[in-house]
Amino acid sequence: MASIAQEFTKGFWKEIPPFRLVLGICAALAVTKSLVDGFGMGIALIFVLVCSNIIISMLRKVIPKKVRLACYIVIIATFVVIVELITQAYVYSLYEALGIFIPLIVVNCIILGRAEAFASKKSVLRSALDGLGIGAGYTLALVFLGALREILGRGTLFAGSQYVINLFGPSFKPYAFMVEAPGAFVCLGLLLGIMNVLGD
């Protein structure tokens, strides 16, 4: 039985998505055009993951086995809609930047995966920590990928917030490939390779 602390920390290395747990690739590719977007997506995902993990764990003894997936989907979708409404009301620029990938959090396999593999079996506290850890690990990965793509593809950091930093000055020719789709795939693929080397 893993200690309570381990439920939280495993998300940062041992089971960090999307590298170790190869889940949630779509969002990881789509919203990492900049660091700020990646971070925003990460926070949205943490919120949904922690909340749905808590509720599902609380109801784990009530939900009949046969309809469990339908129940999970309703619960997850509810929190996703909450995120949708809140970002739209309070951080509209992020809502625009993330576009359809906010509703698509529903089908992010990380969340349903954690619900099925973890929250439906473990206590509320453990489930919450598990959600927080995995979510934070995913956020870390998104921020890292976002920063990498933004630095190379635009030559800036924190674009989309008021603290934009221009890193290389006006003579820098942005490596636009990195913010386009091919850059996203290649970048994630290479990072995965590097993770594999480090992990061995």
Binding site: I25, P182, G183, F185, V186, L188, G189, L192, G193
Partner: peptide
């Protein structure tokens, strides 16, 4: 290190 998902992603990029 690139075997599996990593090389698939790079291929998808190309």
């Amino acid at each position: 290190p690139l075997q599996g998902t990593a090389i698939s992603l790079i291929t998808a990029g190309l």
